[in-house]
Every structure is written in structure tokens, then in C-alpha cells.
Design a protein around this nucleic acid. Structure first.
Lengths: 191, 191
DNA sequence: GTCTATACTCCGATAGAC
DNA sequence: GTCTATCGGAGTATAGAC
């Protein structure tokens, strides 16, 4: 692995700074400081046109890195035969990756209008394509699992501790039990 | 109902402005403009000490109003005997109230450090207290439902349409089916 | 390509007339 | 309690030496 260029170091810390404080709250001087440039000198502008341009490039950079990490993580996982084990594996991966994508989620919530492509990029990478009828029981069960993992992540983030003191392992256990028992999820009107 | 005082009008629009743009991005002149004061004159400071103080009071104001709305909504609901109907009622209420609390959630994510009491206030109001053992099956099932509704709300917000095209009604249906079938949620090691 | 120095703008906040 | 006028500070951005 080559050492990161200065440009990459700037992008790195810019993602952090924008993610933590949003566009308006982010400080160029702070990004310079963290990237190893003298703070407040404007040296950053030899690398990027403006604060706005920096945000755009930082987001694109982080999306690319997150996607690569996700692919890499998927590639290292063993291929499992048991469907339940496969679902557990998937749930654990999702929960883990949510942390990796946290800053992009935050930017999506706070700077969505400023970077409209971000929403597409994130969902394109994160979301398993829905195959066939979205009303299919399997897809609904998957949506419940996905939303539950996402909600768990957000609520835990907000509470600053595991949501309602339910551990990750416990939640996954419950989700597996609920979706494997596979209650009839066909809409009532179709039965 | 009395007409809102100017102070209340300011608090009203301040919640909007802070919620949309965060503390750093919010503009006093914009709040003045929206509250019917001349923009950029600093007239706001006859009512509030500083931007920081305004944020604190705006948050407290919004928490109080959201809580009142929640109580009011609960009070108007009919008392149901059927436990399943009661759960459906509860799920629908949560999904509905999440929209009302949206700005506070956002402020919690973006300005959490600035207003540490906010997290306590919000969770105290929203969260049904966990009775007894948090590992109890009922509480775990409830946590799954709560997280799923929260995640559904957030993801739909981010996607700008119902998450994975699953309608609210459909999600609630699925959650009811999954939690009423009541699979054995006791942790494996206790069986 | 990094620094010094600084221009320029925007914003939060204050003083004081009415 | 709202306006006019303005201060002071902070922040983005630029010009130019090295």
C-alpha cells in the first residue's frame, strides 16, 4: 500500500470534519490542521477550488472507499450452506457496515440537498435489489430485518448505548427467530 | 386558543431553522425574517440573550409541545380490549409521532453535544419503560418492533419514498404477524 | 506546494433613537 | 419592543514570496 498523498489526507479528514459538524459547521482551518498543514493559511486551496468543491470530492471519495470496504468484507466471508447461518451472517455484516457508513448517512440527512447524488450512491451500494414482487413474504421479512437493524443502529447511536440495553447479538437472535418461523406474511386480502 | 406571542413565533421558526440547517447553518436574520421581524436588525436579541440561548429554549419548547401532542393523541384513542388491536394501534401511533419528532431527532444527531439534556427528554417521552427483565421475550419483541418502525421511518426519509416500496400498512401488518406468532424468543442458553 | 499577510464578506451582537 | 446604524470577530479565499 502506497502512503497516502496529501490530497488523500485532506479528503480523509474532510470526511470526518464534514461528517461531525456538517457543511456550515466544518472549518477549513481545522481540516488544514488535521491534514498536517498550518491552520488558517489557506494552503488547502492549492488542492481544492473551494469548500463546496471539497465537500463534493470528499463525499465521492468516501462513497468509493465504503463500497470497496463492503465488497472486500463480502469477499472474505465464507460461503455458507445453511440458509439461517447465511441470514445471520448477512445481519451481522449489515450491522457492522452501518458503522462504516455512518458519516455518509449523517451527511445524507444534513446535506442531502447540497449533494443530491449521495442518496442514490448510498442506496445503490447498500440495498440488496428487491427481486420480483415487493409484496412477496420473503421481501417483506427482509424489509423488516433491514429496518430493524437500521433503527437499532440509529437509536443506539442516539442513546449512546445499546438500544433499551438489548445487545446486538440478542437482536440478531430475535430477528432470526422471527423471520425463520416464517409466519404467513401474505397480505390478508390475498389469502 | 390565544394568539401566539412574538416570543412563541420566534421559538416556532427557530425550531424549524435549527432543525433544517443545524446550529452553525441557522441564520439569525432568517429567523427574524420568518418571525415577522425585520431581517438583520438584531431585534431578536430583545427576546433572547444569544443564538446559543435561543437554541436551548427552542429545544425545550419543542420537547414540551411534542410531549403534549403525544399525550393528546394517546388520550383520543379508544381503549381496545383485543391485545393485537392494541398493538396495531400502538404501532400506528409510533409511526405517526415519528414525523412529529423528526426535527428533534435531527437536532439530537447533529447538536447532541450542545444540548445533552435533549437525549434524555426525548427518550423519556417516546420510550415505553422496559418493565422487568430486558431479556424477557415480550420486551425483545417490542424492541424489534420499535427499531423496525424507527428504521423504516429513517430509511423512507432518506430514500424520499416508502422504504423498498413497502407501505406503512404493510410493514405494520408484517410486524403484527411476526410478533403475534410469538416464536420462542428465550435466549438459547436458557432453554 | 507551503507559508505570510491580508482582502472581503458575512454574521452575531450592541448602542441608542423612537 | 422595533427600528437604524454599526462594531468586532470569524471565516473563506487570494496574492505573492520562497
Amino acid at each position: 500500500m502506497e502512503p497516502p498523498t496529501r490530497r488523500e489526507r485532506i479528503l480523509d479528514v474532510a470526511v470526518e470534519e464534514f461528517g461531525e459538524k456538517g457543511f456550515a459547521g466544518a472549518r477549513i482551518r481545522e481540516i488544514e490542521r488535521r491534514a498536517g498543514l498550518r491552520a488558517g493559511t489557506g494552503s488547502l486551496y492549492r488542492h481544492f477550488e473551494s469548500k463546496e468543491a471539497l465537500l463534493q470530492e470528499a463525499v465521492a471519495y468516501e462513497v468509493a472507499r465504503c463500497r470497496a470496504d463492503l465488497e472486500a468484507a463480502r469477499a472474505t466471508l465464507p460461503v455458507l450452506d445453511d440458509p439461517e447461518a447465511r441470514r445471520r451472517q448477512r445481519f451481522e455484516l449489515i450491522l457492522h457496515e452501518l458503522g462504516r457508513w455512518q458519516r455518509l448517512f449523517r451527511l445524507m440527512l444534513t446535506e442531502g440537498e447540497r449533494v443530491p447524488e449521495l442518496a442514490f450512491a448510498v442506496w445503490d451500494a447498500v440495498q440488496r435489489p428487491v427481486e420480483g414482487d415487493p409484496e412477496r413474504a420473503e421481501n417483506i421479512a427482509d424489509a423488516v430485518a433491514m429496518t430493524s437493524l437500521g433503527g437499532y443502529y440509529f437509536f443506539s447511536l442516539m442513546q449512546g448505548r445499546p438500544f433499551n440495553d438489548v445487545s446486538e447479538a440478542r437482536l440478531i437472535e430475535a430477528l432470526l427467530a422471527m423471520t425463520s418461523t416464517a409466519p404467513d406474511l401474505t397480505p390478508a386480502e390475498r389469502r
